[in-house]
Design a protein around this nucleic acid. Structure first.
Lengths: 214, 214
DNA sequence: ATTAATGTACGAACTAGTGAGTTCACAGTA
DNA sequence: TACTGTGAACTCACTAGTTCGTACATTAAT
């Protein structure tokens, strides 16, 4: 009975309320942008009230920051899912690219938040405490693969890990971030499941092709 | 004196007023997004008043649509700048990619408007009258180059013009659209003039590498 | 004189944020 | 066991400020 989380009849639960707000706010901000998002609307969709948003987060901007940080935190786990030391450099690279491809596809809200944050010149991300921890997870595994490929004389010598990361990101991000204008103009849905495999392999060919060409 | 555009002492000039409003509105919308943009702010930065915005454009949304259409119209001129029939397919492709690269770099406002429009699910672009005229200019030259390359047995047979266009766009767009978060995380400015040549060539290698690999 | 173009002042609706009070769980105390 | 003080979690109604849009007045051109 003294258990902190007993069971069903819970009305007052700090963590649950915070998580509820964050969940709803993520969708609202990703959907409408920072300025377009309405605090009242977020409140209405939670099981709590607007006053609680201010009670727990302080204000609209701090809530947005919390949403942004939570979304970025998820991508840091990508590195840990990468186990490619036993693969040939080319295959390891394809594996890494595919992993990124899958992660982006699985987190459209995150991509939208990144777009929104760029509209705002990344001013919120810049002041975030988690910023420092984002670069290494994204580049660690990639750097090791490139070193192996270079040492084996199979990758071009002037390849920079950050450039390759940018290349992979641009392909994966564009597919989600520019989906709507692309579809409007060319009548092709880049997220059509029927084309998923094609794009996933195209990205691998692209990266390996660039590194092994010449 | 009957000349429609006489000279300096012009206070009443339909075209000039419209153009002035469009110019200022483009910057405001590109900078703040649709919801973030303020009609009063746009009016303040023109040499005219808010009343004129409603007089000429009808409202905030129609003004945004006019801004969007004007920006998209500019990209339709790209096709006409392409004269690569005399070049080998590989070089023609590099030329096309470089041209796109340059155009995107020269029109950051356009890229931002596209991002913003995607946040809004391209709902404004979809209802635009110019939509139908956008696909062909983007793909015409590219399709011809790919045909030549394939006919000569130098490009892979399964290459789709729209996929290649997407590849080129993703690289060029990412460099501008995600500049700020990328710089915040990796401390690298993708628009640094010192790296411009490198990226421009990287894109060419990328496209040619993908088409000629295997 | 009539009409097109322009400027000013204002209002209705919306929006972020807050003031003030309430409910609940629980620990200490008699 | 019953009572009570306390603080965290919560609700409701409100305010101060903003924002799009417009009614009305005015000026210039034909």
């Amino acid at each position: 009975m003294a258990a902190p989380s007993s069971e069903a009849e819970r009305q007052r639960d700090k963590e649950r309320t915070r998580a509820d707000i964050l969940e709803v706010a993520t969708r609202e901000f990703a959907d409408k942008g920072y300025t377009g998002a309405r605090v009242d609307e977020i409140a209405a969709r939670t099981s709590t009230t607007k006053r609680m948003i201010y009670y727990y987060f302080g204000g609209k901007e701090q809530l947005y920051l919390a949403v942004l940080e939570r979304s970025y935190a998820a991508i840091r786990t990508l590195e840990s899912q990468l186990d490619v030391e036993h693969l040939e450099p080319e295959e390891a690279l394809r594996e890494l690219a595919a992993l990124t491809f899958d992660h982006h596809e699985a987190h459209p809200d995150f991509i939208r938040l990144v777009s929104i944050e760029n509209i705002h010149h990344a001013e919120h991300l810049k002041q975030s405490a988690i910023l420092a921890g984002l670069a290494d997870p994204a580049l660690g595994g990639l750097t090791r693969i490139l070193q192996r490929g270079r040492a084996a004389g199979r990758f071009r010598a002037d390849a920079d890990p950050l450039d390759i990361h940018m290349l992979i990101s641009s392909f994966c991000v564009f597919r989600l971030a520019n989906r709507h204008t692309f579809q409007a103009i060319f009548s092709r849905d880049m997220l059509d499941p029927a084309r998923r495999k094609h794009y996933r392999e195209m990205l691998g060919d692209l990266v390996v092709g660039y590194l092994t060409a010449l």
